[in-house]
């Protein structure tokens, strides 16, 4: 698999396996409000990032291949066909997924479904912005009551 040119997109099989890895790194929340990173579509962000990081991409491609080998050896089926717990254990044992953690977080927390689930509107900050309450400047009373604090020169 490592003979694939660094700039090439992942294959459909690799993409499915990558989504499973991302779901292991950020699984769905126990209450179901938050999706897993793979289901949320973070693989698109990660794959885009990998295009600019050829060494990491090669590690990921090798790692996905190794996961599949290990899944077939341990469970008798492809990695993507394994259960959630099995996949999580395989990812933890293989180890390459750790290098994807920061990219996964960056991709995950810009997904609309995730933003809504954590209480944000699913939109960029501009052009609408946010409303912030008016100041309670009466809080300054004790500061104003003190004498000047700067040194005359």
């Amino acid at each position: 698999m490592t003979d694939i040119p660094a700039a090439a997109d992942l294959s459909a099989d690799q993409r499915r396996a990558l989504a499973c890895v991302l779901d292991a790194l950020v699984p769905p929340s126990p209450d179901g409000r938050l999706p897993g990173a793979g289901a949320a579509g973070v693989a698109t962000h990660v794959e885009r990032t990998l295009r600019t990081l050829p060494d990491l991409r090669a590690m990921v491609v090798d790692g996905l291949r190794d996961l599949d080998v290990q899944a077939r050896a341990q469970h008798g089926r492809p990695f993507v066909a394994c259960g959630e717990g099995e996949r999580a254990a395989l990812v933890a044992a293989q180890g390459f997924g750790y290098a994807l953690v920061p990219h996964t977080y960056v991709g995950y927390y810009q997904q609309d479904a995730v933003l809504e689930a954590i209480g944000m509107e699913p939109r960029p900050p501009h052009p609408k912005g946010y409303t912030v309450a008016e100041n309670d400047l009466s809080l300054l009373a004790p500061v104003k009551a003190r004498s000047k604090r700067y040194r005359e020169c």
């Binding site: 962000h45 960056v106 991709g107 927390y109 810009q110 609309d112 939109r123 960029p124 900050p125 501009h126 052009p127």
Partner: peptide
Amino acid sequence: GLRADWEA
């Protein structure tokens, strides 16, 4: 700030 990937 005008795009969804603003923080990234």
